[in-house]
Simulated assay, not measured.
Amino acid sequence: MFNKYSNSTQPVHATWGLVLALFFTSGACTSANAQVNEGKPEFIEATQRWLDNAVSSVRPAGGNPLRMEVTVGELDSRLRLAPCARVEPYIPVGTRLWGKTRLGLRCLEGSTRWNVFLPVTIRAFGAAWLIKGNVASGTVLTEADAMESEVDWAEESSPIVALPSQWVGQVASRALTTGQALRQAMIKPAQVFQAGAQVRVVAQGAGFQITSDGQALSAGVVGQPARVRMDNGRVMSGVVLDNRTVKLEI
């Protein structure tokens, strides 16, 4: 994701916002000559068509297009909107068109200018990994813990973790249950050694590499920084590569 395939689902959300921004600023407006209480206004049906067209080309970074579904809700039945010759949709500030959200509609040409919000649900179906059985918090995940299936990526705000390389070997950050789709908020890197452990320190620079021994002064998590006391007493910081190696950049 939406960050679909992550590394991050951000490209999906960015693409979606850009598509809509370009679409809605290219003159995609319609007329409305009916009040809300007289049945569904013409601009509601037009808005559905606009959204369907806008999301049809959304593609997660590095993956296949998601199967998008847009459901337009109803305006508050208590509203009484004056006739309007031109209604313009817009994305409210701070709103992300993903999952249950809203779209702004404003009258640009009418006897009375008005501005309303329309509830919208955006669904984005694509391949993901579902937990096959209950997994306790702190468990290191293996390929046997999940199976591939199609899910709604937009059902929750946390991005989907779409590739096995992104979650195999990671630790469940909370208890997981059967049928849950794996998302970034559900996993974290595994701790591979504790403070006090003996580790190998690799110092690498331009054209050389030096290996030495040291003692970890902090817990080691793959890909995260850790502090190490060298044999000469000097304290260094580096990045954890595996269960006994810390890499220093010189």
Results as ranks from 00 to 15, higher is better:
200 R>V: 14
220 G>K: 00
206 A>K: 05
216 A>T: 08
207 G>K: 12
193 F>I: 07
162 A>M: 09
195 A>W: 03
219 A>F: 03
217 L>C: 09
174 R>G: 06
159 P>V: 00
206 A>N: 07
209 Q>W: 01
182 L>I: 15
182 L>G: 11
189 P>N: 00
217 L>V: 06
182 L>H: 09
187 I>D: 03
159 P>Y: 00
210 I>S: 14
168 V>G: 06
219 A>Q: 13
202 V>G: 00
185 A>Q: 13
158 S>D: 08
158 S>Q: 01
197 A>Q: 09
150 E>P: 01
213 D>T: 14
170 Q>H: 07
151 V>N: 06
188 K>D: 02
185 A>S: 15
160 I>E: 01
170 Q>D: 10
206 A>R: 13
216 A>C: 11
214 G>T: 05
207 G>S: 08
150 E>V: 15
162 A>W: 08
161 V>N: 05
167 W>R: 03
152 D>I: 08
168 V>T: 15
195 A>I: 00
187 I>C: 04
202 V>W: 00
193 F>G: 07
211 T>C: 11
220 G>P: 01
202 V>E: 15
150 E>K: 08
162 A>E: 11
173 S>D: 14
151 V>H: 03
150 E>N: 09
192 V>W: 04
175 A>L: 05
188 K>L: 04
203 A>S: 13
157 S>C: 00
188 K>Y: 00
157 S>T: 10
209 Q>F: 07
204 Q>H: 06
191 Q>L: 04
217 L>A: 02
168 V>A: 05
182 L>E: 08
177 T>W: 02
200 R>W: 10
204 Q>N: 06
209 Q>A: 13
218 S>G: 09
190 A>I: 03
171 V>G: 01
208 F>Y: 15
200 R>E: 14
202 V>D: 03
153 W>G: 09
220 G>A: 04
151 V>M: 03
163 L>S: 11
164 P>N: 01
172 A>D: 04
206 A>F: 12
154 A>D: 09
165 S>W: 08
159 P>Q: 02
200 R>K: 14
159 P>K: 02
186 M>S: 05
196 G>C: 07
156 E>R: 14
193 F>N: 07
188 K>G: 07
